[in-house]
Design a binder for these strands. Structure first.
Lengths: 138, 138
DNA sequence: TCTTGAAACAGAATGATTACGATTTACATT
DNA sequence: AATGTAAATCGTAATCATTCTGTTTCAAGA
């Protein structure tokens, strides 16, 4: 997933492509790991003085709904990152800097949960901790 | 960990044992899994009309600090449960009614992630879907 | 019983997020 | 290029969970 694919996804679903959406997507495309919504807002307000909170928060949620972004949430803040284009996987997430590391294994593949009493539609598996640089500096 | 042990822990650390603390502990002792702080507050306000939010939130944090409770947080809410290391589990969550079902297996037990480059502190594993009653009625 | 410091109270403050009516804008159609 | 319309954004208020502050009440040791 990159900015071009994101634009196509937006158009395919009948959404418009605005300069603010472009800036949000370009900013997140440059980042490495999960970025708090607040931080995206701050970046955007540098260029668009008086930008409404609503615009940023609603667009981030929209992008996540469309699969353009991946969303997570910890320490009371929602965070977003560009969707990884490769195979299904999960993340280790650094609580200090938000950087992520792939976990190649998916627990769902080894776990039998389809017991007929629960129709599974999705799942979330995340490991939290500290990456080496952040762990050292604390 | 049970209510008696919790009382001892409180006393050992120089904290007082009040009727409100007793009620919070007894309520959580009867529960099965993580309970949102808000829900503890609602239960307490049934008996103590006009009970301060502060009393419940501060006590829950205190209990967690003392190791009486385990704290977690998702969907923007802090949640607590009695400490019980041998009962570690995860949940299937119904997206329609919110009811949960235990998953007896923890993927962390079978996954080697301690590669020295990441200090693991916690993890989250949740399966989303629909329980039988909700699935039938849709 | 008395004393003292912790606990609880009441309500304001905070921080993140969402909601809403009014206005502006993107873009397909004319 | 001009127009119509649904979507996007604005500006601000509301909400939700939680924390803080200053004062009063109370548990438990002396």
């Amino acid at each position: 997933m990159d900015v071009q694919m994101a634009i196509r996804t937006l158009k395919d679903n009948g959404y418009k492509y605005t300069d603010k959406r472009q800036e949000i997507l370009r900013f997140l495309d440059q980042q490495d790991g999960y970025i708090p919504a607040k931080q995206v807002l701050e970046f955007m307000q540098q260029q668009y003085h008086g930008l409404s909170f609503d615009t940023v928060y609603r667009n981030l949620s929209l992008f996540a709904d469309l699969g353009i972004l991946e969303a997570s949430e910890w320490e009371g803040e929602k965070r977003f990152r560009f969707s990884c284009e490769d195979d299904h996987h999960h993340h280790m997430i650094c609580l200090a800097c938000g950087k992520t590391k792939h976990i190649p294994v998916c627990p769902m593949e080894e776990l039998y949960v389809g017991d007929g009493e629960f129709k599974v539609t999705s799942h979330k598996f995340e490991i939290f901790g500290y990456c080496l640089p952040c762990h050292k500096s604390s």
